[in-house]
Write a protein that binds this DNA or RNA. Sequence first.
DNA 1: CGATTCTTTGAAAACAGTCAATCTGTGTGG
DNA 2: CCACACAGATTGACTGTTTTCAAAGAATCG
Lengths: 189, 189
Amino acid sequence: MFDVFIEYLQSKLTITDAEVEMVKQICRLKKLRKKQYLLQEGDVWRYNAFVQKGLLRTYRVDNKGQEHVIQFSAENWWSGDRYSYLTETPARYNIEAIEDCDIVLITKVDYENLLEAIPALNTFVRHLVERSFIASQNRINADISFTAEEKYNDFVTTHPALLNRIPQHMIASYLGLTPETLSRVRSKR
Amino acid sequence: MFDVFIEYLQSKLTITDAEVEMVKQICRLKKLRKKQYLLQEGDVWRYNAFVQKGLLRTYRVDNKGQEHVIQFSAENWWSGDRYSYLTETPARYNIEAIEDCDIVLITKVDYENLLEAIPALNTFVRHLVERSFIASQNRINADISFTAEEKYNDFVTTHPALLNRIPQHMIASYLGLTPETLSRVRSKR
DNA sequence: CGATTCTTTGAAAACAGTCAATCTGTGTGG
DNA sequence: CCACACAGATTGACTGTTTTCAAAGAATCG
């Protein structure tokens, strides 16, 4: 049931059988069909979510009704609204399944306790978040300095595996472009 | 000598006198005059840097020779090239003093050992990096969905204290705009 | 299949960038 | 202390890229 998640942990750090048992105790599995929501704007996000299977998109709706994709989360990656989680305020993001998904959910309290109980996991998560931060900075760099064409080329080389699983207009949104512009960029290659 | 840093730690977490001593042992102070560099592209970044006083800018030079500001770091904040630090490869960023600075440096080995020795610090740093990540996502959101005017207004409300300490052309660069465009945006307010 | 969603294409408009010149303010050295 | 140099900011005219609006083609899914 949580096999993918447990294997992920074992591949990333040394963890005893007892600790694996602790983890399993606090995990909950959530299945999502395509187009269903893991989180909707206005709800408070109270979990840490690990994607065992499938693909999610996190997006925000601006005051003109336009959607902007903030993140994609595929298998073996994490999802959630960290700001809502941290402050326990209503989420400004929506998280929707692009494909049928298997998600592991751990509540905030269980998660924080778990990390205190397993120092190696605490350190692993710290390093994980640091790498996420590095990835964010790379994306910021692309956003502020690349042309439309460069943004797309960068996406293709950085996320080749996602390319054929995500509708083009969502990639456009992720890159801060209109679908029409992305279509034209692609036709020029 | 490290007073500001120690006070910062004490304000953020509970820490014993012995632990404070440990911290002091591994700290090194670096003073920078305005326009001096903390890190230059090509060098490997091997520290964690805490700004006690002053203001730094982290920027990258693109293949057309154009500078792009990735981050500003003022007092009571951290600086560094996390990617170079993590991978021990030559930095792609430059970090330059906008004002005279007092910087606390801790080497990678000392830092990692310290965090293992003080679990509360490990958790604090994890939360710190998580908040940095949230801030990055907010900036990405602005980059992909705001107009020039909205980007500047957002900067003004998010970083009011920095506004008068940073030359306008650097703010423009941070926002992904040309100095001319930012000047025109400002004249319209 | 039929309906819906997604992608492409075209033409016009808006926005931001470029280039060049001028203006402003600041700091330095004589 | 003044004059000058220099960096930074502003302004104008123009260019170019991206967006917008609209419509027509694909592709996908029930």
